[in-house]
């Protein structure tokens, strides 16, 4: 029996046996006057891996904070303080504790708690509800941890779904539904990004020739089929890093990323026209189109302005049309002097 003192005068001590202490404090250590363990709570015994009776306190526990205590006297100097300690056999499981002196030098009572190690300890030692005092908040902490984890999982799933919806809405908004190419919005976003990143690029404006005749002769369904085939050709003649956009009925723009060599671009344009002039079969009907092309380079200006570049490519495109279609023109200062581009008014 441990007589528990009360400092107030005239109050009676209460005597408690080991069984009662086990119930109240399943993780206590009762130390005798010699500093050896007289009794240990059942949960602490379980964590220690077996009985610790008779062992000196220092052999069972290692006191880390505030500082080590080599004997019972030193330990009792820390009466009432918040202790951080570990079981000597389980040094990676930090415990919290508090020590009180027993009256008349009868030893000490140390009560321990798992603190933040609770979740780890429950898994490692397969603890059950019975291993905790009914008043212990451990079970509530475990409950909350699991409940909050479940809620966090749901929120994460919601965020992923919303993010997926946002990404596909953005992609849809920037895509031409007929051809699957980028649309004007997609082109604007790409040009803005490339200007911001200061990466040089060429802008190729492709306008189909004789497309109106296909529409008028074979109908809009045939026209749509031709546009889809044109998209396939334009894609096949560009690289994955380039952007192909349809910005009007039969108008396309290709942005060539980090390619500003005029000879190379002229060669690509010629190849494009050759490929587009091959008859496109819609059902059994061969449809014949061609293309006129205008080209400009972002390196003509510092910093480059997307609207200005589109205007320049347009001027070059109309020069190709004027000179008899089915050809490509690279913009030049001389050409721009004769046909100054009309920039849209600010805010238009």
């Amino acid at each position: 029996m441990i007589p528990i003192p009360d400092s107030g005068p005239g109050t009676a001590a209460i005597g408690l046996g080991g069984a009662a202490l086990d119930r109240l404090m399943p993780m206590h250590l009762w130390l005798g006057p010699d500093g050896r363990v007289r009794h240990a709570g059942p949960t602490l015994t379980r964590l220690a891996g077996g009985a610790v009776q008779g062992l000196p306190f220092g052999a069972v526990m290692t006191l880390r904070r505030p500082h080590p205590a080599p004997d019972l006297g030193a330990l009792l100097q820390l009466e009432g303080a918040s202790l951080k300690l570990v079981l000597t056999g389980v040094p990676d499981l930090p415990l919290k504790g508090v020590v009180v002196a027993l009256p008349e030098g009868a030893g000490a009572l140390v009560d321990l708690s798992l603190g933040i190690s609770l979740i780890e300890a429950v898994g490692r030692f397969d603890l059950t509800l019975r291993d905790f005092a009914p008043t212990d908040l451990a079970v509530e902490l475990l409950y909350l941890t699991e409940a909050k984890a479940a809620v966090a999982d749901e929120l994460k799933r919601l965020a992923l779904r919303l993010n997926g919806a946002r990404a596909s809405a953005e992609a849809e908004a920037a895509t031409d539904t007929l051809t699957g190419l980028a649309n004007r919005r997609g082109l604007d976003a790409t040009l803005a990004r490339m200007v911001r990143d200061r990466s040089p690029f060429a802008l190729m404006h492709v306008d189909l020739d004789h497309f109106k005749a296909v529409n008028d002769t074979h109908g809009h369904a045939a026209g749509d089929a031709v546009l889809r085939q044109v998209a396939v050709v334009l894609r096949s003649q560009s690289r994955g890093r380039d952007l192909v956009a349809r910005i009007g009925g039969d108008e396309f723009v290709i942005v060539f990323d980090e390619m500003v060599d005029p000879a190379q671009l002229r060669q690509i344009a010629r190849r494009l026209i050759t490929r587009l002039e091959r008859p496109i079969l819609v059902g059994d009907v061969p449809c014949r189109i061609s293309a006129s092309i205008g080209i400009t380079l972002s390196t003509r200006h510092d910093p480059p302005d997307p609207d200005r570049l589109l205007q320049e490519a347009d001027v070059a495109l109309y020069e190709s049309k004027r000179r008899g279609r089915a050809r490509a023109t690279l913009v030049s200062d001389r050409l721009l002097a004769v046909n100054p581009p009309v920039l849209p008014a600010a805010g238009a």
Binding site: V122, D126, L127, T128, L129
Partner: peptide, 8 residues
């Protein structure tokens, strides 16, 4: 029923 959540 184990107090420890799965995966621990």
């Amino acid at each position: 029923f184990s107090l420890a959540a799965r995966g621990q």
